[in-house]
């Protein structure tokens, strides 16, 4: 029997998140410290991924992959033919949708403020003095 698997923080979510601590000018991308990572296959939809490529910050994704120890898996730049380059789209799909951080933290690159990730959920709540 197949029980539902849990979605943890995927790298696509990381790509959207930024530090919002008061006074921070450049809080992007957040530094990932991963204690527990899970890779899980999900359905590959080339159209969806090629659309996502236009919506994400590519350098932040390659950096995120490095931060969790998956080096040299992605090209430094998005290839020009990305829409039709199936191999590339598969790599991007894997990076964006299939790698999940279960436990760890996200750290603001400027202030050093750490946001915990527990059970795959990033907790981005700020204290009153940080708003």
């Amino acid at each position: 029997m197949r029980l539902s698997a849990f979605v943890r923080m995927r790298l696509i979510t990381h790509n959207m998140l930024t530090s919002h601590v008061k006074g921070v000018k450049n809080g992007y991308p957040l530094v990932i410290k991963a204690e527990d990572i899970k890779e899980q296959e999900t359905d590959f939809n080339p159209d969806f991924i090629s659309r996502m490529i236009t919506r994400i910050e590519w350098p932040a994704l390659t950096k995120a992959m490095e931060m969790i120890g998956h080096t040299d898996q992605l090209p430094e730049e998005v290839p020009k033919d990305y829409e039709t380059n199936n191999d590339f789209l598969k790599q991007a799909h894997h990076a964006l949708m299939e790698i999940e951080v279960i436990t760890g933290s996200l750290t603001c690159p400027e202030s050093g403020r750490e946001f915990p990730i527990a059970n795959g959920i990033p907790n981005m709540l700020l204290n009153e003095d940080e708003v």
């Binding site: 539902s4 849990f6 998140l17 919002h20 059970n119 709540l125 700020l126 708003v131």
Partner: peptide, 30 residues
């Protein structure tokens, strides 16, 4: 946090934050 826990059980990507200060990069959503 309790509601986000339920989202996670349903397999939906989500995170905890206050809507007065969204921790997302400017212009990142359609």
């Amino acid at each position: 946090v309790s509601l986000i826990n339920i989202c996670k059980q349903k397999n939906f990507p989500s995170f905890v934050c206050n809507g007065l200060k969204l921790p997302v990069r400017e212009g990142s959503f359609d």
